[in-house]
Design a binder for these strands. Structure first.
Length: 157
DNA sequence: GCCAACGTTGGC
DNA sequence: GCCAACGTTGGC
């Protein structure tokens, strides 16, 4: 792990793309497409770097939970799904000359043996200020503090 | 399915 | 630039 690597949490709805789907992907790698929120995009575009560590979170599922670990293997490049009129994330405002949305590639590192449910995380003192646990938090790409990341790894072992 | 908390859009 | 209306996210 690079010295200056940062930590992130990425949300996904397992019904559309789960960590199990990532495990079955070629090279266990996927492009993280479909992000259509400026703040989330800016994190991907301006701060996510190869080697950064990523927590994967299943949202809108029966038991919302952090389910595993991944790493950034390719930095920001245009999200081509924004150009596809048939894609649910189509954005006519994004052109090939001036792409509005970006994505990164992530590679699976591991699936936690036991997912860490939101309800459990709420009881952990070290995570009190975690963005994920903030009321009304909706960011699908969010930074995670080093201490938070380490506390979560500890819970997952 | 409900609804709180957001982000975006567009009239003025 | 304000802000109401609307759409979306996501836990419960």
């Amino acid at each position: 792990m690079a010295k200056n690597s940062k930590f992130w949490l990425l949300k996904t709805e397992p019904e559309s793309f789960s960590i199990q789907d990532l495990a079955k992907s070629p090279k266990q790698t996927t492009c993280w497409d479909g992000v259509r929120n400026y703040q989330a995009r800016n994190f991907m575009r301006d701060e996510m770097r190869v080697g950064d560590r990523v927590l994967l979170y299943h949202s809108s599922s029966e038991t919302p939970a952090i389910v595993g670990l991944a790493g950034v293997v390719r930095e920001d490049y245009p999200d081509h799904t924004a150009w596809d009129p048939k894609d649910s994330h189509y954005d006519p405002g994004s052109t090939k000359e001036d792409p509005r949305w970006v994505m990164v590639d992530i590679k699976l590192e591991r699936i936690f043996r036991e997912p860490l449910p939101l309800a459990k995380l709420r009881g952990i003192a070290a995570l009190k200020e975690m963005e994920l646990l903030r009321k009304g938090s909706r960011l699908s790409v969010q930074p995670v503090r080093k201490a938070e990341f380490e506390a979560i790894l500890k819970l997952a072992q």
